Computed example of a mutant assay.
Amino acid sequence: MSVIKENILETLAYFDMFDYPLTRAELYLFLQQKHSFEVFDNALQRLLDNGVIHQFDKFYTLKNDHHLAVRRNEGNKKAAELTKVAEKVGNMLIRFPFVRGIAISGSLSKNFADDNSDIDLFIITAKNKLWIARTIMHCFKKLTFLVNKEHLFCMNYYIDEQQLQIAEQNIYTAIEVCTLIPLQGDTVFEKFYAANSWTRDFLPNKNMRISSAKPVRNRFFKNLYELLFNNKAGNALDNKLMKITASRWLKKTRQKRLNSHGIIMAMDTGKHFAKPEPTNFQSKLLARYERRIAYILNEYENSLSN
Rank of each mutant, 00 (worst) to 15 (best):
N170C: 15
N170F: 14
Y172V: 14
Y172R: 13
A174D: 12
A174P: 09
I175S: 08
I175L: 11
V177I: 15
L180E: 08
P182D: 11
P182V: 08
P182S: 07
L183G: 04
D186Y: 06
T187L: 06
V188S: 04
F189H: 05
E190W: 00
E190D: 13
K191W: 00
K191G: 04
F192H: 03
Y193R: 00
A194S: 10
A194T: 13
A194F: 01
A195R: 00
N196E: 02
S197L: 08
W198G: 04
T199R: 00
R200M: 08
R200V: 09
D201V: 06
F202K: 01
F202C: 05
L203F: 05
L203D: 03
K206D: 06
M208S: 10
M208V: 11
R209Y: 01
I210M: 11
I210F: 00
S211T: 11
S211E: 13
S211P: 00
A213F: 06
A213N: 06
K214S: 09
K214F: 06
R217D: 13
N218E: 15
N218G: 08
R219L: 12
F221M: 11
L224P: 03
L224Y: 12
Y225C: 11
Y225M: 11
E226L: 04
E226D: 11
L227Y: 10
L227R: 14
L227C: 13
K232W: 11
A233I: 14
A233G: 08
A233F: 08
N235E: 14
L237N: 01
N239P: 01
L241G: 01
K243V: 10
T245M: 00
A246H: 05
S247M: 05
R248L: 05
W249G: 06
W249N: 09
K251N: 12
K252L: 09
K252Q: 07
R254N: 12
Q255D: 14
K256Q: 14
R257P: 02
R257W: 11
R257K: 13
L258H: 09
S260H: 14
H261S: 13
G262D: 15
G262F: 12
I263T: 15
I264N: 08
I264S: 07
I264C: 08
D268Q: 02
T269D: 01
G270R: 05
G270N: 09
K271N: 14
H272A: 15
H272L: 13
F273M: 00
F273Q: 00
A274V: 01
P276Q: 08
P276I: 01
P276M: 05
E277W: 09
